[in-house]
Design a protein around this nucleic acid. Structure first.
Lengths: 329, 329
DNA sequence: AGGCTTGATGTAAACGATTACAAATTATTT
DNA sequence: AAATAATTTGTAATCGTTTACATCAAGCCT
């Protein structure tokens, strides 16, 4: 394996010149530049990243901490982050925190050990409480989950608005007794619940909410329990994709068809929401865009550490499908 | 930020002793061990990973190269790999090669630059052709895709067997004219096609196969075209989750119900295969186990480079659902 | 008691790059 | 043509560890 020393010797220049050429620094003549490039090619030289990182104190690595990569929402975000990162010759280290604040802290620690250039984080509520980006030795961009106050750069959906529109749509379709299921561990659940409640109130309807763990199983169990209510709710609303899956399973197990027996709607457009007949009405999140925006915001923050905090808010898209069809009178 | 030097001074020992204690090396007395540990805690010392990696020439990092993390199959594999890796204090670098051999080569190059300890790779067919693990400066474990010859450590499904069983099941249910869709870019498609063909032949039936790009869109388009055939096939079989999704969409768009108009079955059990009524019959792959086996195999290979090559073969599980129900005579 | 292991510790040389600084060369100005 | 500025190059220090090797003390054996 060739080292910078040998490249320098081959090209008949000093190691400094080689380093300068490879770093793209100015102040090196065209003739040596060419000679160095030739030597690099001839020897198939690859700079040793460990050495570079040690001396330069830059790792060109960013950390991505999410709850679970298997959640399609985060899968897509991770893909976006990786795409952009690699375009900028940066690496990504992923952490699955499983909605567990301790694991989040653990991974943040690990990111410190790795001396990452920056972190993208989708925090649980406990971590978010009292969170200050300044407490960390690297820039942090929050994604998906963030309280109102601008305590860190963030990229989020307009959750209140999206939930409002989804709920209003159901009401317009004649569904009045709508039961809202939301996850307890993330800030989005709360915000979406707010939007739901506001929409209900705006139409003079009483809000009914059910807080559950943000997992498929918990949602299914909670829904199954509520399906014994009489009269049945007009509609179930899920504040996330995992919960929507749980509700759908519960309805199917209970033998309830939608929208005939009960209407259904929720967040996140997944492959199957179109497929489950007659299609499930959802708010589609611009997931890839969220991830892309997050890393681009992070890269900007890295380039300009003193710039004012920013908060990017994206809008969800209502996709009307059969599951919310008009209620017969 | 504390350095090893300061820890040594605080503890009243040499840097060598500190290093030895932290590396867990033998030959250090209990009293200095304790003193060093105390100092580490007091100064909140974290060894600099770049320096460590430079000097020790070990990165404790493994590379994972798959086609697309958004394919649930690989999402799950990646989660398994990361879980085990972190348990062993190792990092994971992910590469999405998008079924593109050039990108695969690019990521393999990148892994070399990163001086990774090992790589887990799910190669395309072109990369697999003439692939030799020995050509790389790190151990490689193939996952999911691998030709017969043992040219590298590998963890795969028994694809021929699984496809055979799936096809045989359909035939037993009375479906005789079964059309098999498989992806052209991966070795699994071929192997599954073999199993399918063998099962058809064993029952005196003629195989009918359709090779498509392994994407949802390509599968949907190909299926839509074939749905004009008269008479219709008795059943469609998909050789992968993405293709199965495409077929399902095509059937739904064509207004064909299964198993009434046509039966359906395929590979990969996904959240929605249960949900799309009356449920889709699939071969469930032990995805997490595949990933886990792959990294464990890799770790063993790293520990014992000279050990004989190994090939782990896992078995798929047939999950019978409504979509393959008995055909009325 | 003196030589010989054994075990614990310290010293200093790596690892392979980047980069501050000095030196050398060339171009520009007066 | 000398003085000055600008550009290009090289030397050597440095990043923070690990680890080969030397050293030293203590225990054991004859």
């Amino acid at each position: 394996m060739a080292r910078i020393k040998e490249v320098a010797k081959w090209a008949g220049v000093s190691v400094a010149s080689v380093s300068r050429v490879l770093a793209g620094h100015a102040g090196v003549s065209e003739v040596t530049r060419q000679r160095v490039l030739e030597a690099v090619k001839a020897l198939d030289y690859r700079p040793d990243l460990a050495a570079r990182r040690l001396r330069s104190r830059r790792t060109d690595t960013i950390g991505l901490i999410v709850s679970d990569i298997r959640n399609p929402f985060f899968t897509e975000i991770s893909r976006a982050v990786e795409d952009v990162a690699y375009q900028h010759q940066m690496r990504v280290i992923l952490g699955n925190a499983d909605e567990n604040p301790e694991k989040e802290a653990l991974y943040l620690d690990l990111m410190r050990d790795e001396n990452v250039t920056g972190v993208i984080l989708s925090p649980t509520l406990p971590t978010l409480a009292g969170f200050r980006a300044d407490d960390y030795p690297f820039p942090i961009v929050l994604v998906d989950r963030c309280e109102r106050e601008t305590v860190a750069d963030a990229v989020v959906l307009d959750n209140v608005d999206a939930a409002y529109r989804l709920t209003a749509h159901l009401i317009e379709q004649g569904h009045r007794r709508n039961l809202f299921f939301y996850g307890t561990t993330s800030a989005t659940g709360r915000q979406r619940q707010e939007g739901y409640t506001a929409a209900m109130a705006a139409h003079g309807l009483e809000a009914q909410v059910e807080a559950v763990l943000a997992t498929v199983d918990a949602a299914r169990a909670a829904a199954t329990a509520r399906l014994n209510d009489r009269p049945l709710p007009d509609a179930l609303i899920a504040s996330s994709g995992l919960i929507l899956l749980g509700l759908t399973e519960a309805l199917q197990e209970a033998g309830l068809r939608f929208p005939g027996s009960i209407a259904l709607a929720g967040f996140d457009d997944m492959p199957w929401t179109r497929l489950v007949e007659p299609g499930i009405t959802v708010i589609a999140q611009p997931t890839y865009d969220l991830g892309q925006a997050a890393i681009e915001l992070l890269l900007q923050r890295i380039a300009q550490p003193e710039k004012a905090r920013r908060r990017v808010v994206l809008r969800g898209e209502l996709r009307e499908r059969g599951s919310s069809a008009k209620r017969g009178v």
